[in-house]
Amino acid sequence: MENVYRRVLNSGTVVKNDFIRKLAEVYIDNYMFSRLEKLGVDLSSRFGVLSRRGMDSIVDEMKEQNVPWNETVANIIMLAYLKMKDFTHLRIFLSQLLTQGVEPDIITVGIVFDANRIGYDGSRTLDTWRENGFLHKAVEMNTDPLVLTTFGKGHFLRNCEAAYSSLDPEVRENKTWTYHHLIDLVFKHTECSLSMKD
């Protein structure tokens, strides 16, 4: 199946959706996630899957079919906008999360902080989360882990892991981690790491 796909891709012929879906299912069923990521990269570079117009058509189709939002779907779309540095659509999506009944999770928080690193101003989003008490809720990951396998862990999530693993096991286990605590920990750890390099 892969050989056929490579031949079709190299010939410049448009690959049919059913074929892409079947190939992706084979990769998922056999835990071949690195190949799934490569498939996505190939398709996005050849056929413009990861484009503003492509994302707009996905969002429009979801609306037409009344597909309910959830953390996984919302974070996939926002990660795509982040990769494209499309801050306008990212801001719109972030502002609609709560009205669509989607509670942000650690992946959503990571998206905001990773976007901030490359020029996005997420202060309005953080203010909204602070006002509605979200930042004082316990940290959760409600996004399908396959999303991280496909898009990779962003800068913020990698810093979370590094900061968390630097703590004593007793501190890790005996604390209820809220988003506020975790964000503080990441910034303190990052500042400490920078000062150790100086």
Rank of each mutant, 00 (worst) to 15 (best):
residue 150 T to K: 09
residue 150 T to V: 14
residue 150 T to I: 13
residue 150 T to G: 04
residue 151 F to C: 03
residue 151 F to S: 09
residue 151 F to P: 11
residue 151 F to M: 13
residue 151 F to H: 11
residue 151 F to W: 04
residue 152 G to W: 09
residue 152 G to R: 10
residue 153 K to Q: 01
residue 153 K to D: 01
residue 153 K to L: 01
residue 153 K to H: 01
residue 154 G to D: 01
residue 154 G to Q: 04
residue 155 H to N: 01
residue 155 H to P: 03
residue 156 F to M: 05
residue 156 F to G: 01
residue 156 F to N: 04
residue 157 L to N: 02
residue 157 L to W: 04
residue 158 R to G: 00
residue 158 R to K: 14
residue 158 R to E: 00
residue 159 N to D: 06
residue 159 N to S: 07
residue 160 C to L: 08
residue 160 C to E: 09
residue 160 C to W: 15
residue 161 E to P: 08
residue 161 E to M: 12
residue 161 E to C: 10
residue 161 E to K: 15
residue 161 E to D: 10
residue 161 E to V: 14
residue 162 A to P: 06
residue 162 A to S: 13
residue 162 A to I: 05
residue 163 A to C: 01
residue 163 A to L: 04
residue 163 A to K: 05
residue 163 A to P: 12
residue 163 A to M: 06
residue 163 A to T: 01
residue 164 Y to R: 10
residue 164 Y to D: 06
residue 164 Y to C: 14
residue 164 Y to H: 08
residue 164 Y to E: 06
residue 164 Y to I: 02
residue 165 S to M: 11
residue 165 S to V: 14
residue 165 S to I: 15
residue 166 S to T: 02
residue 166 S to N: 11
residue 167 L to D: 04
residue 167 L to V: 07
residue 167 L to T: 04
residue 167 L to N: 09
residue 167 L to Q: 05
residue 168 D to E: 13
residue 168 D to H: 15
residue 169 P to G: 11
residue 169 P to H: 05
residue 169 P to K: 08
residue 170 E to G: 12
residue 170 E to C: 13
residue 170 E to S: 15
residue 170 E to A: 15
residue 170 E to W: 11
residue 171 V to T: 15
residue 171 V to F: 13
residue 171 V to L: 07
residue 171 V to K: 15
residue 171 V to P: 10
residue 172 R to S: 02
residue 172 R to A: 04
residue 172 R to T: 04
residue 172 R to D: 00
residue 173 E to L: 14
residue 173 E to D: 03
residue 173 E to H: 09
residue 173 E to I: 08
residue 174 N to D: 07
residue 174 N to Q: 13
residue 175 K to D: 03
residue 175 K to S: 08
residue 175 K to E: 09
residue 175 K to M: 10
residue 176 T to I: 08
residue 176 T to P: 02
residue 176 T to Y: 05
residue 176 T to H: 13
residue 176 T to N: 12
residue 177 W to K: 08
residue 177 W to E: 09
residue 177 W to G: 14
residue 177 W to C: 12
residue 177 W to A: 14
residue 178 T to D: 02
residue 178 T to M: 09
residue 178 T to P: 10
residue 178 T to N: 07
residue 178 T to G: 03
residue 178 T to C: 07
residue 179 Y to F: 06
residue 179 Y to D: 00
residue 179 Y to Q: 03
residue 179 Y to P: 06
residue 179 Y to T: 02
residue 179 Y to V: 03
residue 179 Y to E: 01
